[in-house]
Amino acid sequence: MKNGQLITITDMVKDYPIGKGYFRALEDINLTIGEGEFAGLVGPSGSGKTTLLNIIGSLDVPSKGDANVLGHSIGQLNARQSAQLRNHHLGFIFQTYNLLPVYNVFENVELPLLLLKMEKNKRYELVNQALDWVGLQDKRKSRPAQLSGGECQRVSIARAMVKQPKIVLADEPTANLDAENSHNILQTMETLNRDLKTTFIFATHDEKVIQYLHRKISLFDGKVAKDEQVKK
């Protein structure tokens, strides 16, 4: 890790090929994010929030410059290595939850641990712990179809958190939730951030999310327009 930071992005550019030319989605990004941050990429639609989150999540690679995540240069990883990085150290929360419908709550949360080939007792312990964090012990046997949207998103938080990753990435996690549920899950994530020192990075333009952020990184036209710490 560079300079004690979890994420160090240096002179990074992301171009998407379009026809014969390309579209520059991110330009000249220089950014460091440390342990325990509760940061958000904010900005208007099309400003490059998801693109940046994708690269940090090793789902995509920079076109120029470097994105170093937990000591790994994202551009240098092969498919298997980036899968490894995601599997071991990154958690993902999606706007549409994306739970597996045929598995119950417990099993959905267990999946990342199965991929880590963790032994059963340890798995059960961690899944139970994660269900405690999000307050879903009583729904452990329910299928996603039997849950409300807020409950689904809490399951996906538990799934992202169960292996206690260094970094959790959440793209518009509240977009499908009402105000009450939005606050609810944000409080849950804030608590986890405080207690476990997990770094949270959001991509959002939702005011409800923005008011919880400790750091607000504003993107505009693919550039970092403003980067401010918010006093709490």
Partner: peptide, 12 residues
């Protein structure tokens, strides 16, 4: 399902 599994780090 396949998308989520790939995202959470299961390799192809």
């Amino acid at each position: 399902e396949v998308g989520v599994r790939l995202a959470i780090g299961e390799h192809k």
